[in-house]
Design a protein around this nucleic acid. Structure first.
Lengths: 217, 217
DNA sequence: TGAAGGATAATTTGATCAAAACTTTGACAA
DNA sequence: TTGTCAAAGTTTTGATCAAATTATCCTTCA
């Protein structure tokens, strides 16, 4: 009788926290306490503790020597290294996904893309970030590559808080969108064009996040 | 009064387990229980539990749906993806390390290399693995790149158990060793040659690990 | 005013325990 | 022999608590 009857609470807490980090609900540098989160989320301290430990291991959070856990503040070097990797990993995932692409999947992607455009029109930052995340990982999961998928996930959680800041700063006007080119290439089954479109999308995102802050006093 | 007076136990347990996994003390597929490890290591169950959770997050261990934790068995696809990444990340770390290379560091690397050669002569698999690990990461830490360093660490822990199997199968005769070329390039400050030597080293390792098992019944 | 020192509060850490969930074992029937 | 079911034995999970550690605040003194 082996079935998954119940999902352990530390997993649900983990998922919730990860989602919040990914969508930038926490500011970079903000400190998180076990007790505070447990109260806020209506969970026990033990599951929260384990979830924090896991997120720290994934570099979604940083554990200071003071035993204090904070949302990491990325340096310029960190960001350039993250994009160095993203520009390798995510186009490759896109390339591999092309082989497994189905009409059903393409339709699903088009629907998500429509939602993204709607969010952009309304200037809804959170909806944009959420849609963009779903769009990319709907492609990546199709590649069926454990290792690359996990790496991409890790990079996204690390960049999440900073990306949120950028969006808040510039609004949704200049958001990268090579999604139409990407969808065309995917539906044609052209893996090189798909990978290139992904590279373009990432390059735009990199420019945005590396741009100097608008008005730093 | 902020100083690091005492190291938490879950960290030491984590380090010990990671070391054991890296050197292949556990076979791929082997199950690990919290209680068993706690007894074996003379630690409490709480620190062991947290260490396992962290190692699982780093993909050094795999958490089955049964809640059972095992040492992962890598598929061919996993291995090729890991080497795809290694061939990007580790040469780049080597390249970046060239800028920060000092004579002291070079000497240290030469000493480690001598120990590796001694281990190879004696057919000492564990000493070889340990030396090789120290050699590579002594280079990588010099690069001062958080993100790439962490990625390399993660990839090594994942490949560890499989590498151990390969070494046990073929002995230490055919182990990759482009270390002299690497050391020469590093001491000349030739970053391209250094990165290339690292690529060659990894390519050899990849060949070895992808080779068909000798006599599978 | 401002720095040093210490008391107090908040937080993390690790142990322990009960409950839940899973695996295994063995009995019994087809 | 094969398959099913239930009971027993492990193992994980989450709550709780005491001890250790760190942060914060308040007083005192120059």
């Amino acid at each position: 009788m082996n079935s998954q009857t119940k999902i352990p609470e530390h997993l649900t807490v983990y998922s919730q926290l990860k989602e919040m980090i990914l969508l930038g609900r926490f500011a970079p540098g903000q400190a998180l306490t076990i007790f505070g989160l447990a109260e806020e989320m209506g969970a026990g301290t033990t599951p929260v503790r384990e979830a924090l430990r896991r997120l720290t291991a994934e570099h979604a959070l940083t554990s200071l020597e003071n035993r204090r856990i904070i949302v990491p503040e990325l340096s310029e070097k960190d960001i350039s290294d993250i994009y160095f990797l993203r520009l390798i990993v995510e186009p490759e995932l896109t390339r591999q996904s092309t082989k497994n692409m189905t009409d059903t999947k393409i339709d699903q992607l088009r629907r998500i893309d429509a939602q993204i455009n709607e969010a952009l029109d309304h200037g809804d930052v959170v909806a944009y970030l959420e849609g963009n995340n779903r769009f990319h990982f709907a492609i990546y999961e199709t590649a069926q590559s454990q290792v690359l998928f996990q790496t991409a996930r890790s990079l996204w959680v690390q960049i999440g808080p900073s990306l949120r800041i950028v969006c808040g700063r510039y609004g949704t006007a200049n958001m990268p969108d090579k999604h139409s080119e990407l969808l065309d290439a995917l539906s044609r089954g052209d893996e090189n064009a798909a990978a290139q479109a992904m590279r373009d999308d990432l390059a735009q995102s990199h420019l945005l996040i590396s741009a100097p802050p608008a008005h730093r006093i």
